[in-house]
């Protein structure tokens, strides 16, 4: 994780709160705009934060997203408390999803979220202790 001096914000996410899905991502987007970060970078970060945010809402009890802005990179660190991920490799495969009907009804559960995050990141790391939660780090280089 980048040093604290680059920490731009910590955003809290509540599990199962689909009504507020996207609020954190749009706050992060605003904050990057204010900082004068290039549009093309902001677009990539928006996809990454949205997918991380929705996954926390869908599959965790609660979590945080931390946004770091360094001179040469933006880092998104997403940490949650919850069921975690049994098989990280499988979870990253496009099309794999454990979303239930209530989640699918909302248009989520295509199994594309993690694949999208990976695609839009320059560096992508995900770890999990099943039963404890999931930790995701994504870096977009400036």
């Amino acid at each position: 994780m980048p040093s604290d001096e680059y920490l731009q914000g910590i955003y809290y996410i509540q599990g199962r709160d689909f009504v507020d899905a996207g609020i954190v991502s749009s706050e992060i987007k605003k904050s990057l705009k204010d900082k004068g970060i290039p549009e093309s970078i902001i677009r990539r970060v928006a996809v990454i934060t949205f997918e991380a945010e929705v996954n926390m809402i869908s599959y965790s009890e609660q979590g945080t997203i931390q946004l770091f802005i360094e001179p040469d990179a933006i880092t998104i660190q997403a940490d949650d408390i919850g069921q975690g991920i049994e098989d990280i490799e499988l979870a990253q495969q496009e099309g794999y999803s454990t979303a239930d009907d209530s989640i699918r009804e909302l248009g989520f559960g295509a199994g594309m979220g993690l694949a999208n995050i990976k695609k839009y990141s320059d560096i992508f790391e995900i770890t999990s202790n099943p039963g404890d939660g999931a930790h995701l780090k994504s870096v977009v280089k400036l």
């Binding site: 996809v47 009804e105 909302l106 248009g107």
Partner: peptide
């Protein structure tokens, strides 16, 4: 929504049958 998120472009008109607030 993940498909639209990843593959649609700014300034586009989005056609969907979804009606909920997400």
């Amino acid at each position: 929504l993940s498909d639209v998120m990843a593959n649609s472009k700014e300034g586009s008109i989005w056609v969907t049958r979804q009606v909920h607030l997400n």
